[in-house]
Design a protein around this nucleic acid. Structure first.
Length: 440
RNA sequence: GCCGCGUUCGUCUAGUGGUCCAGGACACUUGGUUCUCAUCCAAGAAAUCAGGGAUUCGAAUUCCCUACGCGGUACCA
């Protein structure tokens, strides 16, 4: 292959928020550029004034930034280059390769022969019969270019190579190739990426749950996990390793290894992968991620779990959360009084829980401070034995009394964070609760 | 309708003529560890490789046909 400059671009149209499907297109384009020491840029395709969404452009840029997909240079905004497209459209009219009609400029498609095209993905060759083609609009009557003209002009001027875009453009390839030829410009290589679909095989949409990058962020997903997961939708690295850093992807990625069938987006696997990233994360790093996440959510400073508090809890929750958002339900009892629920106690299957709890309280009062994990455990194992309860029942009873939940981080460590006094207070509260609402 | 693309476990996929009665990962089931949950470990179930023909000693892999899905057929991208 001839050595040539590699320049790729991500070219979304600002008709909505940064879409999860677009992430993969952007990622692949970025990987190809980085792998080859090339350039990766952003182009905003806002030539459709009717579907234009003002906030979209900002959201796309913010999304790319959050994901770590930094583009080089300033974004190119098509609506600002109207004159350019008009100039080039005129050039084709002058050459006799295009004509005006109803205020629009049309490209004259040859009606004979064929166009052969080889895609970078799978190296498949596609043949189009020109007899099936029709003339198409280059410049709309409002003076804006259509996608077809804008693509050819911009990607020529930007020296894009290869062009990486969605599969829906494959049928338009004859238009693009012939337009390049009409200008007498070099034709770039193309990679048409297969679509990403929902579980019902239809194009990914709101029905399938979260779909914009912003929503995934709110759900507590990590950018690294999203990139990693999206990369694997249609691509498997040669070494079969699934957890890959961006750098590893850069090293291993190749468009020719991309699978050409549409892929179903499976959030369950993304969640698993997110959990892997959380577990892999350094504690200090995870602390920052959680605190930033919580700040984002509350839109300001943290009152409840402070940075220090989060830091203490991180080792306890690390293996128990898949998403940053899981942090809250798992730990909020540490900073807030629990609300007891009769059914929680009922599940434990203890007949005389009030008496048991009173015994627990007694033992806690006797225990030397600061409480020691080993002594704590021995004490209550022994108590369980004396009262003919299983150790599990005993610890669960304490757990529910202290947290109002049957699932929490490890008991003793949680209690340590709560503090001796607060723990005793909660046990007393629990005694009151069971007294007033006896379990049948 | 016409044109194009696609079709391997539920999902993502490995696989380019014999090493595949199809391998891995997620999810699922079971067991172990354990104060709950999770983690971790072990085992298991799960694909007649869309269907049918052809080529071949031999096909998931090559060729043809059919079916189904998706995309395009816009002065939308």
């Amino acid at each position: 292959m001839i050595a040539m400059k590699i320049k790729t671009r991500f070219a979304p149209s600002p008709t909505g928020m940064m879409h999860i499907g677009g992430v993969r297109t952007a990622l692949y384009a970025c990987l190809v550029a980085r792998k080859n020491g090339g350039m990766f840029s952003l182009r905003i395709e806002d030539t459709d004034r009717y579907r234009f969404v003002p906030e979209a452009q900002e959201d796309i840029i913010a999304g790319l930034k959050w994901l770590g997909l930094e583009f080089d240079g300033e974004p190119i905004i098509q609506s600002e280059r109207k004159d350019l497209y008009q100039k080039y459209a005129k050039e084709l009219v002058d050459k006799g390769l295009a004509y005006e009609s109803d205020g629009a400029v049309w490209f004259k498609m040859p009606k004979e022969g064929e166009v052969r095209f080889k895609d970078l993905i799978g190296e498949r060759e596609v043949v189009f019969n020109l007899a099936d083609q029709k003339d198409f609009v280059l410049l709309k009557s409002d003076g804006f270019p259509t996608y077809h003209l804008a693509h050819v002009v911009d990607d020529h001027l930007m020296e894009t190579n290869p062009v990486i875009r969605g599969d829906e453009w494959l049928p338009s390839i004859p238009k693009h190739i012939l337009t390049f030829k009409a200008f007498d410009w070099e034709i770039p290589s193309y990679a048409h990426l297969p679509l990403i679909v929902g579980t019902d095989r239809a194009k990914l949409s709101k029905r399938h749950g979260a779909k914009s990058v912003g929503e995934f962020r709110k759900d507590g997903f990590l950018p690294e996990a999203i990139l990693n997961y999206m990369a694997l939708l249609g691509w498997t690295p040669p070494n079969d390793k699934e957890i890959l850093s961006f750098e590893e992807m850069v090293k291993l990625f190749d468009l020719k290894d991309v699978h050409w069938a549409p892929a179903v987006f499976d959030v369950t696997k993304l969640e698993w992968m997110n959990g892997e990233y959380i577990r892999k994360s350094q504690n200090s790093n995870l602390k920052t991620q959680i605190s930033n996440y919580l700040k984002d959510l509350s839109g300001g400073a943290l009152e409840h779990p402070t940075e220090e508090e989060i830091e203490k809890v991180v080792p306890l929750v690390k293996e128990r959360i898949k998403k940053l958002s899981d942090f809250v339900p798992l730990t909020d009892f540490l900073w807030e009084k629990p609300e007891y629920d009769q059914s929680q106690f009922k599940k434990l299957n203890i007949k005389n829980e009030k008496e048991v709890l009173e015994k627990v309280l007694e033992k806690l009062e006797e225990m030397e401070k600061p409480w020691d994990a080993k002594i704590f455990e021995e004490t209550f194992r022994k108590l369980a034995e004396d009262l003919e309860l299983s150790a599990s029942q005993m610890f669960q009873l304490i757990r529910v009394s202290v947290s109002g939940q049957t699932v929490t981080p490890p008991l003793f460590e949680s209690i340590q964070i709560l503090g001796e006094e607060e723990t005793k207070i909660r046990i007393r509260d629990a005694v009151e609760f069971v007294k007033n609402s006896p379990v049948a």
